[in-house]
Design a protein around this nucleic acid. Sequence first.
RNA 1: GCCGGAGUGGCGGAACUGGUAGACGCGCUGGAUUCAAAAUCCAGUGGGCGAAAGCUUGUGAGGGUUCGAGUCCCUCCUCCGGUACCA
Length: 872
Amino acid sequence: MKTPYDPHALETKWQSRWDDARLFEAPDSDPRPKFYMLEMFPYPSGRLHMGHVRNYSIGDVVARIKKKQGYNVMHPFGWDAFGLPAENAAIERGVHPAEWTYQNIREMRGQLKRLGLGYDWTREIATCHPEYYRWEQLIFIRALEKGLVYRRKALVNWSEKMQTVLANEQVIDGLDYRYGLPVVQKELTQWFFKTTDYAEELLSAIDDLEGHWPERVLLEQRARIGKSHGTLVNFQLTPPVDGQSVLPVFTTRPDTLYGVTFMSLAPEHPMALKLAQGTPHEAAVNAFVQKALQEDKHKRGTDAGSQGDIFTGRTCINPINGAEVPIYIASYVLMDYGTGAVMAVPAHDQRDFDFARRFDLPVQVVINPPNGTALAPATMTEAYADDGVLVNSGPFTGLPNREAMTRITEHLAQNNHGAQTIHYRLRDWCVSRQRYWGAPIPVVYCDRCDVVPVPESQLPVTLPEDVDFRSEGGSPLARCASFVTTTCPQCGGPARRETDTFDTFVESSWYQLRYASPRCDTGPVDPAQVQQWLPVDQYIGGIEHAVGHLMYSRFYHRLMQDLGFFGPEVPREPFQRLLTQGMVCKETLFTRDANGHIQWHTPEQVDEDGNSRQNGQPVETGRAEKMSKSKHNGVDPEEIINRYGVDSARLFVLFASPPENDLLWKDEGVEGVHRFLGRVWHFVTQQRDAIAGAPHTVDAAAPLDDAQKEMRRAIHRTIEQVSTDVDGRFHFNTAIARCMELTNALTRFRPDQSDALGLAIQREGAIALLQLLSPFAPHICEELWEHLGQPGFIAEAPWPSFDPALAKADTLTIAVQVMGKMRGTVEAPADCDTEAMKDLALAHPNVQKHIAGKSIQRVIAVPGKLVNIIAR
RNA sequence: GCCGGAGUGGCGGAACUGGUAGACGCGCUGGAUUCAAAAUCCAGUGGGCGAAAGCUUGUGAGGGUUCGAGUCCCUCCUCCGGUACCA
């Protein structure tokens, strides 16, 4: 009698049983140790894609294993629900962003539930809900009071098309990430978080993440913070310009100070225009600066050609030697690094060297190589940037340059001409966005009282419902008079509300904290619950958030802690361990038209002859790329689930490659794992009665025959191997492979119905297999668990243990080499000593053949592994 | 340019701290079952030589260390990421 494997019926059945039993709800107080498992929450786009399936399946496996290992697992889910697509939907289809978003959430929640993911849905949050963002507004106000938030004019990436500010990561080669249209620089007054106050801590704390976060992410974070030691040097302006008598410069090479032959300022530098005022160069400088400012920031420097620089007509004084230094404006100098001014040392910096040669400016050598050769400015073909000994440097001549760095800096400091300083590349975080669908920034502008934070009692500042969305963009909030018009909380006079909303990275910077007490109505978090649950023990998400989201969260967690929202005993890092999973890719299909333009196709658009049904052209197969709508290489998870069931879909994404690698989607691969589940199903259902009736323990005293011994060994070894594969290493692909091997062994092991011992072993194997497989393919395992009459949910059954003695083999296969070449294998008892191994190896006929006529010089034996005979 | 990472069968991928390369799966080939097909099951499957035993070659290329190298060291090539005038 064969019961067919019908995944759909049993998957629905177990999902509702888990629900009814509230299996995945995490109690706040529980004697078990806690384990906080979190995957990066999604933007509710409306449809689940394969990348989600992968991310959440990986997380679910970890959560289920931890649960079986006896942890009180919190595995929450929520929605990163603010963002531009909702507004675009409003413009394009006339749906209100809120309606669109909540509808999408409903749909995606349904899809996720069908995946059988063990989330604690009672903790669900959506960041667009006022009960979420009201606390964000509170945090902002507290930060403002503490001086950790401020407002300033800043040049921002401005998209004309979208009428909004873009983050640096949304600008690719000077074009916006969405439409690929130019992004210009525009000056706006913006709100900033003082992330730079935390630069040092964010950097030094990275050391503690070593080994727990991917090396690559740590590297990128370190690079983004960009700490560099240097010296601030004040060049003097005589006479002062616009009241300024100094021009500060940041340099990492104070040892080359005597070699400065000119100075370069960024076009944005506040002194740029003022310096040229009244000089014959004024008009030219004005024109140059104007042009540079309009030019795209990224393109500007690339042709470091003659167009890129201009003389201001002014000079300044080098404080170390009183030398007069001409001041230039150079497009390659960045305003947002250092002071926006660079001292140029052509002899020892390649860029300055190129510049000097182009303009025929003097080159002054101040460091000679340690080997004694003297550099000559006239004949140098490139800058000398390495270490050496100082020359032409007044009292510092003769010093090794490393030492000179400190000495010169000290000298400057003593004379008030400079100071040692540390500089970070990290910038303060601009959080203002000129959009509707975001959390309103809770401040009010009053003509009398200036900037006034909205009192805490008046929070949340909610988004008005009735607003006007227009395709030409601009801020709908700014157009909404009923929102903008308000009274000043301080003087009661007429006032205007801030119409910018927060960057959506603000919401995702603290959601991991909110999950600990998702319905807390006394503050953003309940400190006791934060202490109970944080930090996140395992975080999983895409590598694309390596710096953005992960840096903001690390900052925000500390910010909230320092504002007193939770206690100092909570660790300062929000995410203990991080796993970055790879993308889901699939091969692409395309045709080319006469002009060589590529058109992408879905597999359905290809006919039997391999031609496109659309244009008749022969279809070519491209390389595998990330699944996307535009490339037409996506696979809809629903379709896969309808065809094979959830367990097969999950199992495939876990089996096809290790989590951190990209995954290559293959329909045949899904069929493969589906077949495997079918084998498991048929094995257990067919042996069901025999297994259920077998003794529940294997008699330890009973003598086993070879096949039985081998079977038991396979069972215990599999438990051992799956446990190590899964624990910390997340090698789910090999863990599943081991389950497949065990299944193959079990289906071959056919004890006689009267053989109680054999049946007991079969039972032991079947139960172990279901246990090990259950985190990966939970539904089928629950069903078969029930078939075998096992009590309770397999999801709650403790992770199986193994007997190391049983996992070990009695005899080992020893590799035998002659002169390092494989010549055969011998069977040796497990406890065989090296002498006995050597004897066995030497007795091997093939070995005899290869050492015939030679003398044995040496025999190397590695216990339990191999024997290598050196004979000449 | 600079900084990382990776190159293993037809494919995805295994191989713990140097010790039988290719586990497991896909695909392919042959067979069983079937009126037939699908499904399922069994066997084989890196290349070359061989009837077989076996030999030989093989982890991007070249060199090195070692009794022994996919694994360690050096040089180079390719691909993939990150970053880009950072003073």
